[in-house]
Every structure is written in C-alpha cells, then in structure tokens.
Simulated scan of single mutants.
Amino acid sequence: MGVSTMQALTIRLQDEIFALEATSVREILDPVPITRVPNAADFVGGLINVRGTVVPLADLRVVFGMDRPPMDKDTRIVVVEFDLDGEPMTAGILADRVHEVTEIEADAREAVPAVGMRWPPAFVRSIGKRDDGFIIIPDMQRIFRDEGVVAATTERQNP
C-alpha cells in the first residue's frame, strides 16, 4: 500500500460501500439500454453503448455474492477505464447508488484479512476505514482477469 491519499468515488452495492479510484472513472450514466449477450457469464451479461463505443457492463454484486435487485431510480452505471495486462480496459460498473468523491488516507487502508470476510479476499485490494464503517476497495484488474472478461470481450469485438 502506498503512502498516498486515494481519491475515490464511493458507490453502494446492497448495504456495502465500495470505492473506485477516481482517476479511473470516466463518467457516470443513468441506466441505458443493455444488449444481453447469449450464454455470457452473469458478471458481464451485457454490453452498453457509451458514446458510440461498445462497453461490457459488469455487475460486481455477482463477484461478491450479493443479491441483484432490479434497477431503480438510484441505479447508475459508472464507466471506468483501467490498465489490464498492459491494455486499456473500459467497462461499465452497475451501482445501486453513487455517493461521492472522497479521500481515503493511506493510514486508513488495511490489507485484507485472510479469514473472517464474506467477500472473496482475492478480489479486494484493501479495506478502507471511515467513520464507523468500512469501504471495500476492489481489485478491478484481478476481478476482470479472473472472470474471463478479457477473452470474452476480445472474441465479441473480433468475430
């Protein structure tokens, strides 16, 4: 963990707060039409059009074993871009609600405990502490790599 402050966009998935690195956030969208992909994994079951570009829509609730209620007035799509194995990856992330951009100090971030967590530890980069709660900082690169999104997205774009 670096000694720097992390600028983060906080989002809610069910009753948990997650933090996405603010530098990776490109835009926040209201729900848009989703093109379902036959036989796709639940994690990325659809594609969306973001300013003329086809972007996979990921649901982190699948990876973290959460319920998936239908979209409502608070649902947003956070478009993120990050480096994945040396290539830029753009994806939409479903959020039950978008909260705020905030700072998470380095000394408020801790390594993931090996036991006692309800989330897969491999997919959590660190846990942030804020007020009396926790903020989960997901490891987006590992989630997308381990869930096979790269191969599936490449195959769809290059039939």
Rank of each mutant, 00 (worst) to 15 (best):
R36G: 09
F144L: 12
E81D: 08
V62K: 15
G52V: 05
V79M: 04
V50P: 01
K73H: 10
A108T: 07
R125A: 11
T75P: 14
D74N: 14
V37R: 06
A91D: 03
V124D: 00
G52H: 07
R51C: 04
L13C: 01
E110G: 13
Q14C: 11
I77S: 00
E100N: 07
P120V: 07
R145H: 15
P70G: 10
M117T: 11
F18I: 02
Q7L: 08
L94V: 15
V63Q: 04
S4E: 15
P121W: 05
R51L: 06
R12N: 12
V124M: 06
T5C: 14
R125F: 10
F134K: 11
H99N: 12
L29V: 11
V79P: 02
R142W: 09
A91Y: 01
D42F: 13
M6L: 15
N158F: 10
D15C: 02
D72I: 12
D30M: 12
P120S: 04
D74H: 13
F123M: 10
D67L: 15
V37K: 05
E155G: 02
R142A: 06
R142T: 14
E87F: 01
V3Q: 15
V124A: 07
A152K: 09
G45H: 12
V3G: 15
R156H: 05
G116V: 03
I28T: 06
P88D: 00
M71D: 13
L60F: 15
M117A: 05
G52K: 09
G116Y: 03
I48M: 12
A122Q: 14
V101W: 09
V80L: 08
V37D: 04
P159Y: 11
D74V: 07
A111H: 13
E87P: 03
A108W: 01
P159H: 11
A19D: 00
F18Q: 01
P159A: 14
R36E: 11
P113V: 02
V32I: 15
Q14H: 10
T10C: 02
L47E: 01
D67Y: 06
L9V: 10
D96E: 04
L94C: 11
P69T: 02
G92P: 00
I143E: 09
M71E: 10
I135R: 00
E105V: 03
F43R: 03
I135W: 00
R97C: 08
E147A: 14
V98A: 02
E110P: 01
M140Q: 08
A151H: 04
P56D: 11
P88H: 04
G86L: 08
D139M: 13
I135V: 15
P33V: 07
D59E: 12
Q7I: 00
D107E: 12
T23A: 12
G133F: 03
M71K: 07
E105G: 09
P56R: 06
P69S: 13
R109F: 02
I137L: 12
T153L: 06
A114R: 08
L57E: 13
M140D: 01
V3N: 15
R12M: 13
F134R: 10
R145W: 09
V98T: 01
